[in-house]
């Protein structure tokens, strides 16, 4: 298979970037998208050209490292799929593919396709936890949690923190990410004691990090590789309301 790639190249956060054209001639349809980029890089390196920098690690859709806007969509065309799980068989011979980094003020580009998403860590540090020191825990089965509640909490907790929701949103809002964490803890009894403080502080930190406000378009849900649902946002709003009432 032959693929024409337009890839964003940028040497550092402070330098200007631009698109460069590359052709991959012998892509094979069993390759994953990232393997195709490995293949391109091997070729570039042999020619003495700089390899394209992109983040990746698990290549199984769980670590949240991979990113990329592929033809304008975060993680590419397939729904519920991270870039690392996308396969070349989803493209056609001769296709042109535009590859860019996730774009958001809160995610500065470090080099080429790598961005800095540590803003998410700072939001977590602001309240994304249950305050329990090691050694402090009661016997596990003394906390009963219905199967359905546990499963709903698990669905929210499945977020991989990749930032696709931010990249998809025209306002670069991080609401889906924050709401997933807030929901997980709001659903579980362990999260109840700190629920007001948590939601207030996480949302405040989100604003401080220069994420935009929710655009109410649902683009985030559509782009999420883990299909985190908009229900979480409704829960976040309820938690905010509750926190303001109980204040």
């Amino acid at each position: 298979m032959k693929l024409n790639l337009k890839i964003w190249r940028q040497k550092s956060p402070s330098e200007q970037g631009q698109f460069k054209d590359y052709v991959v001639n012998n892509a094979n349809e069993d390759m994953s998208f990232l393997e195709m980029l490995d293949f391109l890089n091997m070729d570039l390196v042999r020619k003495g050209e700089e390899a394209v920098q992109f983040d990746h690690d698990c290549r199984e859709g769980i670590c949240g490292s991979c990113s990329l806007m592929i033809n304008g969509s975060p993680h590419g065309p397939e729904t519920g799929t991270a870039t690392c799980q996308l396969h070349i068989r989803k493209f056609k011979d001769g296709d042109t593919i535009v590859i860019e980094p996730f774009r958001a003020k809160a995610f500065p580009v470090l080099r080429d396709l790598c961005v800095d998403r540590t803003a998410f860590d700072r939001i977590m540090a602001a309240g994304g936890f249950c305050s329990v020191n090691t050694g402090n825990a009661p016997e596990a089965n003394s906390i009963l949690i219905g199967k359905e509640v546990a499963e709903n909490a698990m669905d929210s907790a499945a977020c991989i923190g990749c930032g696709a929701c931010v990249a998809a949103c025209k306002n670069a809002s991080a609401m889906l990410f924050v709401s997933a964490k807030v929901s997980q803890f709001a659903l579980l009894p362990q999260g109840k004691p700190e629920r007001s403080r948590r939601v207030r502080q996480m949302v405040a930190q989100m604003d401080k990090e220069m994420f935009g406000s929710c655009s109410n378009t649902g683009a985030c849900e559509a782009a999420c590789p883990k299909e985190i649902s908009l229900e979480n946002m409704a829960r976040l709003n309820r938690e905010m309301l509750r926190a303001s009432v109980t204040e």
Partner: peptide
Amino acid sequence: IDQCVAQGVPFAR
């Protein structure tokens, strides 16, 4: 297991 449950790890039930 006690520690993880207290942190809010959503184990299967």
